[in-house]
């Protein structure tokens, strides 16, 4: 009898913990994010993004079926590239496309395989270009797709190439059914003591119709 009571009690605890803990408020990154937000006026803004389209070669663009969700993002400017342009239209700043020396396959599955291998071996793919006068920027919008539940490894190459001290990072992510997964968690871990603001995540298929959403988010992030 005692056992049964115990089981019942345990399940009650489970329910309660399930109810309460799922609703814990968001907390991204460090404590600084919890401070009252100040307006970042006259900030120098960099919009850096990694997009599949800029890191692959499509031999015959006309052969790409734009209606297929996995194919549309291989055509320039790519999903993250498109979002980066909207952000620029809204808040200004300079665009920078993060590109790797070794390109990725334009085939969805093959690209995913590549991404998974890089993730497992914690690769830091070599990047082609560097941002000039990086130290002059205050705010960096950082965009990328969710690859295999985390950021593409090139994002970590990028983040580790510069000194992010005293900078504010605002991530924007395109994703499939996995949502943001562990992209933001891994990014904040790679940027300890850097202020990382609330990200925006847009589902791949909804990117085309999300201009207003992205723009208003970009503006609000600076307030």
């Amino acid at each position: 009898m005692k056992k049964k009571v115990l089981i019942v009690l345990l399940s009650m605890i489970f329910i309660i913990s399930g109810c309460t803990q799922t609703e814990t408020p968001q907390n991204h990154g460090d404590e600084q994010g919890d401070q009252p937000t100040e307006i970042i006026a006259d900030a120098n803004i960099l919009i850096a993004y990694f997009t599949w389209a800029d890191n692959t070669v499509v031999v015959n663009p006309e052969s790409v079926d734009v209606d297929a969700s996995s194919s549309a993002s291989v055509l320039t400017p790519g999903n993250a590239g498109l979002m980066a342009r909207w952000i620029q239209e809204e808040v200004g700043g300079d665009l920078f496309s993060i590109q790797t020396v070794n390109q990725y396959s334009s085939d969805y599955d093959e690209c995913l395989d590549q991404a998974s291998r890089e993730k497992a071996s914690r690769d830091r793919p070599a990047l082609i270009d560097t941002v000039e006068n990086f130290e002059e920027y205050d705010v960096i919008y950082l965009g990328f797709p969710n690859w295999w539940y985390t950021c593409p490894m090139a994002i970590f190459s990028f983040v580790e190439s510069y000194d992010f001290n005293n900078k504010t990072v605002i991530p924007f992510v395109t994703h499939g059914t996995g949502g943001l997964s562990s992209t933001i968690r891994d990014l904040t871990n790679a940027l300890p003591s850097v202020r990382v603001l609330d990200p925006i995540g847009i589902e791949r298929e909804d990117v085309d119709s999300s201009e207003d959403k992205v723009k208003s988010w970009a503006l609000n992030s600076l307030k």
Partner: peptide
């Protein structure tokens, strides 16, 4: 792809 909310605790 499985949806994961990184804000949700392991216990939850």
């Amino acid at each position: 792809f499985v949806y994961f909310d990184y804000r949700q605790t392991l216990l939850s």
